[in-house]
Structure formats: C-alpha cells, structure tokens
Amino acid sequence: MDLITILLGGLASGMVLFIVSVGLSVTMGLMGFVNLAHGGFAMLGGYVIALSMQHWGLPFGWALLLGFIAIAALSVVLERLFYSRLYRAGELDQVLFTIGLVFVMTASVTLGIGPTSQSVVLPDWLKGQTDLGFIQYRTYSLALIAAGSLLVLALWLGFERTRFGARIRAAVDNRRMASSLGVDVGRLFTVTFAIGSGLAAVGGGLGAEILGLDPNYPLRYLVYFLIVVSVGGLGRVTGVFFAALLIGVLDFVLKIYFPKGGTIFIYALTLMLLLARPQGLFGKKGS
C-alpha cells in the first residue's frame, strides 16, 4: 500500500476517535471527573442510530441527529441524578461508579437487543470510491475526514469565539477562580456533558464501520479513548484532535506493518509521554 492510502485510512479512524473522545476531554478537564462510561454513550448512540435506520427506515443524517439528541438527553438525566453526587468524591468512587454504569449499559444492550454486533447501513452516496484526481479512495473514509475536520473547526470556533467557550476555557484552567467570578460551573458542566455525550453517540454511529458496534464496545475501546484524552491534554479540543489523528494513524500503520502486537508502541509512547508531560501534549501545566 502506498503512503497516501495508509495515511487516509489512519486519518479516518483518527477522526472517529476524535468525535468520540472530545466530549470526554472537555468534561474531564472541567470537573476532573474520571468518566469511564463515556464509551458506553458512544455505544448506546451507535445502537440508536443503527436500529432507527433498520426498523424505522430513518435516513442516515436524521438517524445521527436522533442519536445525538437521545444520548444527550439520557446523559443529562444521568448527570443530574448520579454524576453530580460524585464530583467531590475521590477518583476511586468515580471509577467504581462509571465501571458499574458500563456494566449496566453492556448488560442492558445484551438483554434487550442481543449480543451480536450491529451494522450501520450506509446510504448509497457514501458507498463506493471517489476519484480525488491523484488517487481513488473510499468515499466514506473521505466523508469521515471531512466531517471530523468540520467538527473540529466548529468546536474551535465555539471555544475560542463565543462567550460560552470562554467560560469553559476559564473553568478548565481554574475552576475556583471561574466560579468566584460568577461562572456557574455546574450548569456549564451539564451542558458540555450533554454535548460531549451526544457527540460520542454520533461518533459511535459514524465509527461503527471502523470500530464495530457490539455490547463490549465500551470496555474494548476504553483504553484508547483515555489515551487520546490524556495525550491531547484535558479540556483541549485541538489537543484531542491532534492526539486522535496521531493515534489513529499510528494504530493504522502499526496494524499493517506489525499485525501482531504492534500496538505495544502506542502504549509505550503514551507511557513515556505522560511521564515527561503529565498534562499531555497540549495541556497546560498544573491544570
């Protein structure tokens, strides 16, 4: 395979990683909440998207929107009912709670829908190959790259150019200072949590082609999502973007050239990076 083909494939899976993990990064950065159930929202969203297309015949775009809204709503309910009680608790309780939540999600999906994996049927215009002039490549991967790039642009604008984004940045950098200046960090968190979970849901649907979609999804990719977030730096949208692309491409390349255990390099690199820069590649020191 030549270089560009590999690069494009890696970028496409990196984009999926980004769409799923970006919410996790922001919510972890805001509250320091260790949310291991984030992948669960991605899985549930993927199921909503896949099943609504299969059973109700929803078009792809509308199914994505439905997935976003459904999971955002669900996450607000969970956040208000449970997560909010654990903000002041230690990491241990948060880990325990969110692992329990993952179990509940996995078991509910297995019980309600079944243990087999689901597929998202792509519409015709996303199937096949597209001629880029110099290369023929899968339309869907190109669409993923385009969608991810648009999303990061939108999120970046939202973060850097709106008042809401400024509040988030302030709260990520210094939560106490921000709240004493009148930023309602709790409400900010609820909203970002909802948006982040909704994006994860969309990522679960979009990425079903690459990451698959079955009840074990949340645990299987947990380490990957966490690596992306910690490499990118907590609460850094662009950081997560570059980290996701880096890891997506690296993973893709390693799986081709070292099909057996090549991913060991990703863990080793993450380990060394975090030791040298505990705040991640793009995080600020001490935040």
Partner: peptide, 20 residues
Amino acid sequence: PTAWQLGIGIVLVVVALYAR
C-alpha cells in the same frame, strides 16, 4: 450471565453512591 452483569453493575453504582 447477562442479568448477573446487570446486577453487579447496579450494585457497583449503589455502592459508589451510598455505601462507599
């Protein structure tokens, strides 16, 4: 097997919230 996982999940959630 599945109901067990559901059960242990609920137990974990309850322990984390109420019985630390």
